[in-house]
Amino acid sequence: MQRPTATASGAPLPRMNPQQLRSPATSSAMARFAGVQPPQPGQDLGQLLRSVYGASPRDPQRPDLRAAAADLGMSARQLRRWANGESRPRATNPALQRLQRLSRTVLDSRAGRARALGAQAPAQPAAARTIRIGGVQGVVSGNDDAYRDRTIEVDLTPAEYAELQRLWVEHGNAGLADGLHALTDRNYYEQWHFQSIDSIQWGDRGRGR
């Protein structure tokens, strides 16, 4: 499960700046494209619990309360009241504070990304589609004028989408960025380079997801 490292011609793939990969815009765009709704401040507690602890084995639309209870030191019954909106903990509640801390870093680990992806409804094209990638980009060059803010459209098959999801789970934003560089090298323009990415969508050509 290696990250792609070379173009179709064997040249090294370009890499995005690590600082840019950690930007909120890039992280959010990549998570949403992979099929994950990133945890948001003020999010419904049921959704927050599911984002952090994954889906219930019995009901994929509900959080795994057993795992959450074991980690937070609470009863599954009380957490069910949180998830159902029947009870709202105080802001100073230690369990709530831990849940909120974990939600901010849940996508930083492979296990967290896999759990988050598994908690979502399937999101993948049933047939060949097009993805639109927005950000500062252009052909690899030492001249900064080669890069500008634009949106490109690239053909995408279901197998390629599944591979991009896998790269995101296994290697995070860096893995998905490498996968997008490999995809554009094959299907758009050799040595295409993303300096920044602020939006990724898939759907029919000319239409949103």
Rank of each mutant, 00 (worst) to 15 (best):
A29S: 14
S87H: 10
S23E: 10
V106K: 00
L102H: 02
P60I: 01
G203M: 06
E86V: 06
G42Q: 03
N84G: 06
S51E: 06
G203I: 03
Q165K: 13
A126V: 14
Y189C: 15
R129D: 04
S109T: 15
T151E: 14
D144P: 08
G135R: 00
N173D: 14
S9Q: 12
G135D: 00
L117T: 03
L117D: 00
L180D: 00
A127N: 11
F33S: 05
G138D: 04
R58Q: 14
R3D: 09
A174Q: 11
N93S: 13
V169T: 10
T130M: 12
A83P: 06
A162L: 14
L99Q: 07
A127C: 12
A91Y: 09
A29T: 04
E190H: 12
A6Y: 10
S103M: 07
I133L: 11
I200C: 02
A67G: 01
A162Q: 15
I131C: 14
G208N: 12
I200M: 01
A159S: 14
N84E: 13
Q165N: 10
W82G: 03
L79A: 04
A121F: 08
R50D: 05
P125F: 09
Q40A: 13
R32Y: 00
G138L: 05
L176A: 03
D44H: 15
P60A: 05
R88K: 12
V169F: 06
F194C: 08
P24Y: 02
G85P: 04
A29K: 00
L96F: 02
A182C: 05
N187V: 01
Q120A: 14
R77Y: 07
T5D: 15
R129L: 05
G203D: 09
N93L: 08
R186L: 05
A116R: 08
N187M: 07
